[in-house]
């Protein structure tokens, strides 16, 4: 015990002294209001859309100079693109400007957009729908990103195009997750395979696939419990679900869809990496784009891992799931 308490004391002591020191040297309250006040002011001033910022920027700087590039980088960072990707984008823009001998700041926007598109790739990636039925889609992601809702919308999308869709309720962990999926199944008018809460999710996946085969479903969508990508045991569980599906049908799951919340910051890259290492992500669905976030992190994810974004969620209604198009996304970053 001695060792630990002393370690703790030594660490604590150091910073407590530091804290005490800063308390005596300044009026923390005054300091705080000053800082917060200033910050708030600056924030309200700059709460504009991405494009307004760029337009502003371009207006203010007639010539293309270092300040301009710096501000460009800042704007990108604010869109959650990530600081490394932002620097890279700016670097590319800088190079193009030089090569093409551009000297009008007004052309900057188009050049930047071009590079964002280039990073995102030009192809629209669609879901891997197989000839042999059922196509099995496994939906994964951290807690609260919108997996179940996305499944509801996805089921609707395919059902309304004439496919026979079956849902597998393999989130047996979260309270009422099964009920939630059931309500979606009812709304959409598709069947659902479920076990009791706390059941083995791999067993649910197994039964779902059996049922999908027996009922000649075209598409099986398997919901899984939200899990933080850092939890090794939960990632093992996910691997098992995937394994069981693969054993019952060669090539299944044909699509492993990672759901990412557009509001997420740079952690999205870690999420994509670790989920990818565990179960081999084949596509990303970016949700909650109806909020204030533009989902710029997708550029960072694409840059780091090259996983295609296939779908975007843009609202609460059943129709609010769209195919992702890199071009439109790049445009949307600048529109509004």
């Amino acid at each position: 015990m001695g060792l630990f308490s002393r370690l703790k004391e030594s660490i604590k002591g150091g910073s407590q002294q530091a804290a005490a020191a800063s308390e005596t040297t300044q009026e923390p309250e005054l300091e705080k209001t000053g800082f917060f006040g200033r910050l708030k002011e600056s924030l309200t001033k700059t709460r504009q859309s991405f494009v307004e910022k760029i337009d502003n920027l371009v207006h203010r700087h007639k010539a293309i100079d270092e300040d301009l590039y710096e501000e460009l980088e800042e704007i990108l960072v604010q869109a959650d693109v990530g600081v490394n990707t932002a620097m890279e984008l700016v670097e590319k823009t800088r190079r193009s400007v030089k090569e093409r001998r551009v000297d009008d700041a007004g052309e900057l926007k188009a050049i930047l957009k071009e590079h964002i598109r280039e990073m995102l790739g030009t192809d629209t990636a669609s879901l891997n729908i197989t000839d042999e039925t059922p196509t099995v889609i496994m939906v994964v992601g951290v807690n609260g990103v919108g997996k179940t809702t996305t499944i509801g919308k996805l089921a609707h999308y395919y059902k309304s195009r004439g496919a026979k869709v079956l849902l597998g309720a393999a989130d047996t962990f979260r309270a009422a997750a099964i009920d939630q999926l059931e309500i979606w199944a009812e709304r959409v008018g598709v069947e659902i395979i479920k076990h009791r809460e706390g059941a083995d999710p791999a067993a649910v996946a197994f039964d779902s696939l059996q049922a999908a085969k027996a009922r000649r479903a075209d598409l099986l969508i398997v919901d899984t419990a939200g899990r933080l990508h850092t939890k090794a045991n939960l990632m093992e569980e996910l691997k098992k679900i995937s394994r069981v599906l693969g054993r019952e049908m060669a090539g299944a799951p044909h699509e492993v869809l990672l759901i990412l919340d557009a509001t997420t910051g740079q952690n999205a890259v870690n999420q994509a990496r670790l989920f990818g290492e565990a179960v081999g992500i084949t596509g990303i669905a970016l949700t909650k784009l109806d909020g204030s976030s533009k989902g710029g992190v997708i550029i960072a994810v694409k840059q780091a891992l090259d996983i295609p974004v296939k779908l975007i969620g843009i609202g609460e209604s059943l129709e609010d799931l769209r195919p992702f198009s890199p071009g439109d996304f790049a445009d949307a970053l600048f529109d509004e």
């Binding site: 959650d80 609260g144 919340d261 509001t263 997420t264 910051g265 952690n267 999205a268 909020g291 992190v297």
Partner: peptide, 8 residues
């Protein structure tokens, strides 16, 4: 959510 990005 602690993972929130710039939108926080």
């Amino acid at each position: 959510d602690a993972m929130t990005g710039q939108a926080a």
